[in-house]
Amino acid sequence: MLLRHLVVGVKRPSGCLTKWYSSRVFVPIEPAISHIDETKVKPAPELNQELVDHLERLSLVRFSNEEAVHHLRKAIHFANRLKLVDTTNVKPMESVLEEMTCPLREDVVNDGNIREQVLCNATNRVEEYFVTPPGNIALEQAPSLDWTNIRDAPDKSTT
């Protein structure tokens, strides 16, 4: 997605642009530093305990302390910069493979029968089964964070 947007939308030094069009290279040959107007970047939203709990449950990643949540806000702020790129009428590129055709294989059995390998990392097994706790256990709620500490932290990332 990024590469195509760079070509279409972002303004950069003119010398750099001509070089691109003549050679049809889509990745800049020289570093092209774009200047971002930080005042136009949408600030990261306020996070609260409920949202952090939800994100932790979805990602199974624990934001163990206030610093981690601060980093998350910085990451959101950084991502928000991308929204300044004008993508009108640009079809998003999902993958560099999108011009290719999905390779197909014939329907033959040529794998499996490697139970020992499959089970070798299991910490707990009964007969040939993996053993897990019953049901689906949602991630337990972590102790609440010190939210005043996070809100007071500086918002801008240092690049």
């Binding site: 794998d111 499996g112 029968n113 490697i114 139970r115 390998q117 499959v118 007969e127 040939e128």
Partner: peptide, 12 residues
């Protein structure tokens, strides 16, 4: 077939 035998490394 017997438990966890029709499993490739991709499937796990």
């Amino acid at each position: 077939c017997s438990v966890n035998s029709a499993v490739s490394l991709f499937d796990c």
